[in-house]
Design a protein around this nucleic acid. Sequence first.
DNA 1: TAGATTGTTAATCGATTAACAATC
DNA 2: TAGATTGTTAATCGATTAACAATC
Lengths: 232, 232
Amino acid sequence: MSKSKDKNKPTSDAVPKAVVSRLSLYLRELQRLQRDGVVTTSSTQLGQLLGFTDAQVRKDLAHFGHFGYPGVGYRCSELVSAVKQIIGTDHTWPVVLAGVGNLGRALLGHRGFSHQGFDIVSAVDSDPDKYGKTLDGIEIRPISELPEIVLQYDVRLAIIAAPASAAQEVAERIVSAGICGILNFAPITLHLPPEVAVSSVDLAIEMEQLSFAMTNLRPPNELLSEEKPSDG
Amino acid sequence: MSKSKDKNKPTSDAVPKAVVSRLSLYLRELQRLQRDGVVTTSSTQLGQLLGFTDAQVRKDLAHFGHFGYPGVGYRCSELVSAVKQIIGTDHTWPVVLAGVGNLGRALLGHRGFSHQGFDIVSAVDSDPDKYGKTLDGIEIRPISELPEIVLQYDVRLAIIAAPASAAQEVAERIVSAGICGILNFAPITLHLPPEVAVSSVDLAIEMEQLSFAMTNLRPPNELLSEEKPSDG
DNA sequence: TAGATTGTTAATCGATTAACAATC
DNA sequence: TAGATTGTTAATCGATTAACAATC
């Protein structure tokens, strides 16, 4: 079954990491086009909107099948469905949130999430004072109940919004409970078995990219004309 | 001045994007080692901690100078200082926050930020009901006052935590006010002049990476033994 | 048909890794 | 000195782009 007539490409483990994140960008852009009433688009248009070449857009999509019509382009609604299915957000994932501090509460409040394929169904914390309290309709439970929560809601994804000092241990408990995908907001590198998927967002690191750009790519104007005589 | 004895490498515009984000990871890890009392480290150790090869660590650092001692390794404190200087966080950047909703408030509360080189000095919003109110010691001001804020605090970086519908316009006003680095949390692609540095964090996109991994890289166990007979 | 745009192959480009002389 | 580890060059690997036949 599936597409196994190719040489020895094992279904899809040959998909580069970068392709997957662009896939999400295509989806976001396609949905925006849809909202604007656009019915058909092209690799050229998508590329321009996102800053990629048309060739890259076609190549990326071609990893997963033939979604376009030569001479016509891509139908937005069809491509949205296809990409959602590839990404796995053609259904909603129940998610557990670990850590209900500043950031955790913001994530709970931000339920716009749910119609994008993710729904926070439960929250845990290690502070007993918080147990039993309800935030945005979600009861905060002890972290020790993670195994039951996972079973109860068939959860496979977790978000860690715990402080750095607790994050590794929290991650291990999450994995022990049977979860195999983690979005980590704590500013540490998690050390987990390779079969666990981890995405990380570190605020400081994002800001540092900007700081670097300011410092190195944006000389304070005096240097601009001095250091680089011209460029040819 | 600076290091201009090399061939014709124009200071640093040849630094690949990926190198810069690893630089931030090195810094984070080095600071953790320091806290743990480690004085000296090596490319091998750093690589293992972060999941890179030793060669990559050395090559990344070599983009910026000679920071190591052959036969010895790198002194953590020296390398921390050097990397901070390269990144530009050897001093603190004043930052303006645009949008004080759920996420914006969390960012304001999360002031751990400041000793990592970034300090939110002002916040703006487009909701008049919020003007004049104070959150975590920061007064919320009208977005129209951005130009004055930029001058007042010498701000060069902004964080956008506005809703998607407002983000492009907010970004344009931010750029008009003279800011040239933006961390964007809104789920849209900002279209701005190329000299403006933009980092983006989209929660949905991060989660989608996990969803893809669950869906495609983690077959429900039946397929595991069927499709791939062995591997030798 | 003429014009447009796909999917794909081959060519280019860039980034990672391996290997090793130089150094402490 | 022997052992360790750097900085760097050359070899490998992978990803992006250009080009074009096939298609509508």
